[in-house]
Amino acid sequence: MRNYPRNSPQAAARIVALALISDGHVSSSEERALESLDIAGQLGLAPAQFAQIVQTMCEDQSVAHTPAVGQLDAAQLTTLFGEIDDTALRRKVIRLCLAVTVADNYLADGEIALLTAVFRAWGPQPVQTTNRHVALLSAPRAHARTAATT
Results as ranks from 00 to 15, higher is better:
Met1Ile: 01
Asn3Gly: 08
Asn3Arg: 14
Asn3Met: 05
Pro5Trp: 07
Asn7Cys: 06
Ser8Phe: 09
Ser8Pro: 02
Pro9Ala: 09
Gln10Lys: 10
Gln10Leu: 04
Gln10Pro: 00
Ala11Arg: 13
Ala11Val: 11
Ala12Trp: 02
Ala13Ser: 08
Arg14Pro: 09
Val16Pro: 02
Ala17Asp: 04
Ala17Leu: 06
Leu20Met: 13
Ile21Cys: 06
Ser22Leu: 08
Asp23Tyr: 03
Gly24Val: 10
Val26His: 03
Val26Pro: 06
Ser27Ile: 00
Ser28His: 11
Ser29Ile: 09
Ala33Cys: 15
Glu35Ile: 12
Ser36Thr: 14
Leu37Pro: 01
Leu37Glu: 09
Leu37Ile: 01
Asp38Tyr: 00
Ile39His: 06
Ile39Ser: 00
Ile39Gln: 01
Ile39Lys: 03
Ile39Cys: 02
Ile39Met: 02
Gly41Lys: 07
Gln42Met: 10
Gln42Ala: 02
Gly44Met: 03
Gly44His: 03
Gly44Arg: 03
Gly44Phe: 07
Leu45Tyr: 05
Leu45Thr: 01
Leu45Ser: 05
Pro47Ala: 04
Ala48Thr: 13
Phe50Ala: 02
Ala51His: 04
Gln52Val: 06
Ile53Pro: 02
Gln55Ser: 13
Gln55Asp: 13
Gln55Phe: 07
Gln55Pro: 00
Thr56Met: 10
Met57Pro: 00
Cys58Phe: 02
Cys58Ile: 15
Gln61Ala: 06
Ala64Glu: 13
Ala64Val: 06
Thr66Arg: 14
Thr66Tyr: 10
Pro67Met: 04
Pro67Tyr: 08
Ala68Arg: 15
Ala68Met: 11
Val69Met: 15
Gly70Leu: 07
Gly70Asn: 01
Gln71Met: 10
Leu72Glu: 07
Asp73Met: 08
Ala75Phe: 11
Gln76Cys: 10
Leu77Ser: 01
Leu80Val: 04
Asp85Arg: 12
Asp85Thr: 14
Ala88Tyr: 04
Leu89Ala: 03
Lys92Asn: 09
Lys92Ser: 09
Val93Tyr: 11
Arg95Thr: 10
Arg95Ser: 12
Cys97Ser: 15
Val100Arg: 03
Ala103Lys: 09
Asp104Met: 07
Asn105Gln: 13
Tyr106Val: 09
Leu107Trp: 05
Gly110Leu: 12
Gly110Val: 14
Ile112Cys: 07
Ala113Phe: 08
Ala113Leu: 11
Leu114Trp: 07
Leu115Glu: 07
Leu115Asp: 06
Thr116Pro: 00
Thr116Leu: 06
Thr116Ser: 15
Thr116Met: 04
Val118Glu: 13
Val118Phe: 15
Arg120Lys: 15
Ala121Gln: 12
Ala121Glu: 12
Ala121Gly: 15
Pro124Leu: 13
Pro124Met: 10
Pro124Ile: 07
Gln125Trp: 04
Val127Pro: 00
Gln128Arg: 08
Gln128Ser: 07
Gln128Glu: 13
Thr130Pro: 05
Asn131Phe: 07
Asn131Tyr: 04
His133Leu: 14
Ala135Phe: 12
Leu136Thr: 02
Leu137Thr: 00
Ser138Phe: 11
Ser138Gly: 00
Ala139Tyr: 05
Pro140Leu: 05
Arg141Val: 07
Arg141Glu: 12
Ala142Phe: 13
Ala144Thr: 03
Arg145Thr: 00
Thr146Arg: 15
Thr146His: 13
Thr146Ala: 14
Thr146Pro: 00
Ala148Lys: 11
Thr150Phe: 09
